Computed example of a mutant assay.
Amino acid sequence: MQLADERIELVPFKDSDFEFFQKIITCPQMMEHVYDPLTYDEAKSSFEGRLPPWKFESDNWRSFIITEIINGDKLGYISLRIVNHEAKIAEVGFMIKASAQGKGLGSKALKLMKQYAFDTLMLNKLVAFCSVHNVGSYSLLEKEDFSRESCLKQNTLMNNQYRDDYAYSLCNPAL
């Protein structure tokens, strides 16, 4: 399976990606609108649950490193997990490192993930959730045709404060 365009490719997680993943998921600035930064042990456990092999029947995340083709730089990661196997619905999530944000790379990665979800996995629907304060994430979702379905009040607890999230969805246009 090749998930790539002219600029980036999505490569399934491998053991050597842990350091990159850990830098993102334990960084307070990167995690500001997501959830409390993980400890090293929590990051290790989360990472190990994302390593291949993955099956459609799995409940864990299928994660890919977003890699720039020209120089091999790791730009972030994007993940998908089936949340309703019967209805073929999956949640998608992404993290783009700060130096790669605002360059259209997240959009490219989300386009590739949509293609994988709808054309390869034959999913019916993708859903995504993000903080109402995470302008970058919800702008990206809206750019990629996700529809804002609701505002989930006090949906996430971060730093001992409840935060509101937006819920987004995108149905498979071929179904």
Rank of each mutant, 00 (worst) to 15 (best):
V11N: 09
Y35T: 01
R148D: 06
E57P: 00
G136D: 06
M158A: 09
G72C: 10
K143I: 05
L38M: 13
L140P: 01
L123R: 00
E32C: 10
A90Y: 07
N84L: 06
L152R: 04
D164M: 04
G49Q: 11
V135P: 01
D165C: 09
S79H: 04
T67I: 14
A90K: 01
K97H: 08
F47Q: 05
D59P: 05
E32Q: 14
S137K: 04
E68Y: 10
D36M: 00
M122V: 07
I96A: 01
L157S: 07
V92N: 07
L75H: 07
D73G: 08
N155Q: 14
S169M: 04
Y35R: 08
S58K: 02
F118I: 00
L110W: 00
D165L: 09
N172E: 10
I25Y: 07
H33F: 14
Y35G: 02
Y166F: 14
N71Q: 09
N84H: 11
F129K: 11
A90M: 08
C151S: 13
T67A: 08
G136Q: 11
V92C: 03
W61V: 04
K108I: 03
H85P: 06
Q115D: 15
N172C: 08
F21H: 09
V83H: 02
K55F: 11
S99D: 15
V83R: 10
K108R: 15
A174L: 13
F18H: 12
L175T: 13
Q161N: 15
E48N: 11
G136A: 13
Y116H: 10
K74C: 06
F64L: 08
W54D: 05
Q161M: 14
S169K: 06
Q29W: 07
E9K: 14
F56V: 11
M113Q: 02
D73Q: 15
P173F: 00
S45D: 14
K74E: 12
K97Q: 10
R7D: 14
E57I: 06
M122D: 13
D73M: 09
E6S: 14
D36E: 11
A98F: 06
I66W: 02
E32G: 08
L110D: 02
P28A: 07
K108N: 12
Y116T: 01
I78H: 03
K88L: 14
R62P: 01
L75I: 04
L105V: 02
C171V: 12
N124Q: 10
K103E: 10
F56R: 13
E9M: 09
I8R: 04
C27I: 00
K103T: 01
F94V: 09
F56L: 13
L157M: 11
G72D: 09
S107R: 12
L175D: 12
D36L: 03
L3K: 03
F129S: 12
L105A: 05
F64R: 06
W61R: 07
L157I: 08
A128C: 09
L126E: 05
I89V: 15
T39P: 01
R81H: 13
F20W: 07
K153D: 06
G102D: 09
G93H: 01
K114G: 02
Y116Q: 03
H85V: 03
D17Q: 11
H85I: 09
E68Q: 15
Q115P: 02
Y166I: 00
P28M: 10
K88I: 00
L3H: 08
S169C: 11
G104K: 07
Y35V: 02
A98N: 12
